[in-house]
Design a protein around this nucleic acid. Sequence first.
DNA 1: TATGAATGAGCCTTCATTCAT
DNA 2: CATGAATGAAGGCTCATTCAT
Lengths: 218, 218, 218, 218
Amino acid sequence: MRLKKLKWERKAEERPGALLHAALDVFCRQGYRATRLEVVADAAGVSKGTVYRYFRNKEDLLKQALEERVRIKLGATEAALQEFSGAPAEKLRFILTGYWTRAQEADFMRFHRLMFGEIARELPLLFQYWIQNGTVRGWKLLEGIIREGQESGAFRKNADAQGVAQFALSGLFHQAYLQAHIGTKNRSACPPDRILQSVLDLLITGLKPIKLAGKKHD
Amino acid sequence: MRLKKLKWERKAEERPGALLHAALDVFCRQGYRATRLEVVADAAGVSKGTVYRYFRNKEDLLKQALEERVRIKLGATEAALQEFSGAPAEKLRFILTGYWTRAQEADFMRFHRLMFGEIARELPLLFQYWIQNGTVRGWKLLEGIIREGQESGAFRKNADAQGVAQFALSGLFHQAYLQAHIGTKNRSACPPDRILQSVLDLLITGLKPIKLAGKKHD
Amino acid sequence: MRLKKLKWERKAEERPGALLHAALDVFCRQGYRATRLEVVADAAGVSKGTVYRYFRNKEDLLKQALEERVRIKLGATEAALQEFSGAPAEKLRFILTGYWTRAQEADFMRFHRLMFGEIARELPLLFQYWIQNGTVRGWKLLEGIIREGQESGAFRKNADAQGVAQFALSGLFHQAYLQAHIGTKNRSACPPDRILQSVLDLLITGLKPIKLAGKKHD
Amino acid sequence: MRLKKLKWERKAEERPGALLHAALDVFCRQGYRATRLEVVADAAGVSKGTVYRYFRNKEDLLKQALEERVRIKLGATEAALQEFSGAPAEKLRFILTGYWTRAQEADFMRFHRLMFGEIARELPLLFQYWIQNGTVRGWKLLEGIIREGQESGAFRKNADAQGVAQFALSGLFHQAYLQAHIGTKNRSACPPDRILQSVLDLLITGLKPIKLAGKKHD
DNA sequence: TATGAATGAGCCTTCATTCAT
DNA sequence: CATGAATGAAGGCTCATTCAT
């Protein structure tokens, strides 16, 4: 009936990837349940039926899209740290600034809304997989930096590196999430820049070794 | 005419609160979209049709249920602080411990999962309203305590009270949220107790006035 | 969109029965798989969704329709015999004539085409249930008549009552089935009347006790 | 033009018989409607698209597969009888035993299930053609044997050879069909061996010339 | 006013068929 | 000619919403 496309193109190689990207994008924007598979197909430039050549069903499409994203982001996160070397405090500053910047991108927000909103409830196992391979890895990274600092004497040793790392990243994440929803120009909330500064200030200050009059150090 | 108006104005009171409570409860547990209206009706002890006597549609039911909750909880946050007086650091410890405890209750988690998951997308205006009257109020509270501490000299003055407050509460909230999803016994994550301790440690240490050589402080 | 029926009638009591009948009728005519549920609904004067108020799904609808039919026919078959009493040969003639008559009705044919065509393959358990409670009961009835005759001496005792009964009814059934498909006026096939006569002739003659010259009897 | 015609005429030969055989085989096993064309293609060792080079569509494939089978089996029925000569009663016994044996083979059952189940509805004309060239031929064969017997005085002359033949073969066929579905070990049904014995007994006894007092026979 | 039977739009999924390669 | 990627119509089922009772 529709004349939209009388001819199709044979691009088997590109299809799965295109679908994966289209799917995650549309899911992020409209929500998983609310998204009709036809819209995903449209976004990928194929027809409804084609989706089923590459994916068992809607859930499988989501699952694979997520797995691919995790796979891609995984390396990126680890690589992020490698490209920097400096004093622990500087590393801290570098990594948190990077995270904060990314966390404020629209794409990032949409993705997390999808995850915390629907996936956490609809596909709890997939959600946990993502937490373990995404979130927790981020925690470990930061934890490592803090530990390094503790070993080198840059940070005080009695701080709980793991607890602090989790807390810091969660705080930044959730602030970004809220800023995205209530709007950055919102009068009653602290502007983004100051959030990051506060976190850095708090961490760097709070982790500084306590120097007592000449004798004790720790 | 008058009768009509009266009716309209009193509608809110006549409207079975049972429905509002049942709705919010079921929505929290099963998700907004995933909840069939019949289940809400059942939970409230009425029939499906009755829901439509009091609410325009499913969305209206959700909206009013949330508005009612916001209305009720409004004062609660402020009251929380009144019940305590002590040193700023103690106040900090008290309020954060209280928040952490509440944040780990199943009830609290379910409600926030609903809010961040579905309401943020389905009813963004309502979501913002809730953030302003719930979350932001919490921030202000904590901010106030820090400011107090800064004024009394218990905390260093160059800390950003607002930024720190927002960050701290967000960090706690999101940690609670994640703990709820990945399970407390998860090996790779920091156990709840240590999270709270880390936050308190970090804040209290990080806000401690910096003691310079000899006497000056700030 | 359609103006077909702006108002509906509330006939909860009649619905299941009406749907059951409509369903079996349409299934018989068009086949189970080929029948869209909407057509059944139309035939019953309701809408698609209503079917699902009374039946879990399409299979459940078929299952219940069949069970009802079995229930109804069950008594009818047994009652058929009660209304007659006479010599075994007459009973035989009576019951087989009745069966042959019924077997030639369009309704009967369609139903069996459904059963042997689709149900036997798609829902084998249901099919067996029907065979046991429909077909096999018919066999038992005829078997009983033959046994009676054997006991009264009207039929020879060394005939296999069960085998003969099954064979006779199957022969009649399948002849009716084929006549329905190839048409009664078909030149190359024996006309219906003569089929029945042949069967009666063969049975009555073939079951007659063999009277030998005075001595042996059996 | 000539080329075209040649092509057309030779089409049948060029057409991969593998597809026809595979098609009929899979249709018999899984049913016509339930069979995906891809499965047929797989079974024939070709790809889905190839099917459409030789057959207009699924129905055409079925039709041609059946026509080929009918063509092949056509002579087989007649040949069956040639291989035996003996007394009419023995001929009867021989041919019915042979039929009964074949009728119980899985292959035979599957094919007839397809015919009576789906073809009778989907392709009624083809079904009739098959009945005429398969079933009815079998009837004629048996009818001929009975007539022979009647002429030789081995069977009584007032029996309806045609009616008896049709009835007998239908009875055997349908019993085999049912046995296949309800299982041979079914307690409530007569075992296969006894079915055949009953039929032979009934026919031979029922067709025996009636010996009247002394000499006359008819 | 309460009830719950009835409606029908909407969406996932299948698969016969087409057609670029 | 063969292949198999792509298409899209079709149908089962759900559930928010309506409305006769």
